[in-house]
């Protein structure tokens, strides 16, 4: 399925989709969006690359193997829950900082949790899609 149009569109769309996914991730505190949707969009960006340029080209641009992404994402989510335990409050209690940061907004453990979800979703979806596609590639 080599299509010139799709291939050249993918090159432009890939950074846009990634940027949009990060936007969705941080928008998720107070408005529709969040780690899950953001992660799906980011995974779409990579799978678009894999469709047009082959699995190898998508893997080259990934920061780590999908398994490692899953592990890291889960670690971030787990860490966000542990912060409140360290403060002596029940597990997963949301804690917020006071001063807003640029782009991210007010920092807090839910942001960390959402980022963990984002990374995990990217890892899981790509693990499934890339493995499936690799089987079909000659």
């Amino acid at each position: 399925m080599r299509s010139v149009i799709l291939a050249s569109a993918a090159r432009v769309l890939f950074p846009l989709l990634l940027l949009f996914s990060v936007f969705l991730l941080f928008r998720g505190h107070n408005e529709p969006g969040g780690g899950f949707v953001g992660g799906l969009v980011a995974a779409t960006a990579y799978s678009l690359l894999a469709l047009t340029g082959g699995v190898e080209s998508a893997r080259r641009l990934l920061p780590a193997r999908p398994e490692i992404l899953i592990g890291t994402g889960l670690l971030a989510a787990l860490g966000s829950g542990l912060v409140s335990l360290a403060e002596g409050r029940p597990f997963m209690t949301g804690l917020w900082g006071e001063t807003p940061l640029p782009v991210i907004g007010k920092p807090g453990t839910p942001v960390l949790f959402d980022t963990g979800v984002y990374v995990t979703v990217v890892g899981v979806v790509l693990l499934i899609l890339l493995t499936l596609q690799e089987e079909d590639e000659p």
Binding site: E67, I68, I70, G71, L74, L75, L78, L85, P90, F91
Partner: peptide, 24 residues
């Protein structure tokens, strides 16, 4: 007190994460 209830969930999760990261 509440740590006792959460630990049986956290320990396996942390172990799963560690074993994923050590998969190689």
């Amino acid at each position: 007190m509440n740590l006792l209830l959460v630990l049986p969930l956290l320990v396996p999760l942390a172990t799963a994460i560690a074993t994923i990261l050590l998969s190689r």
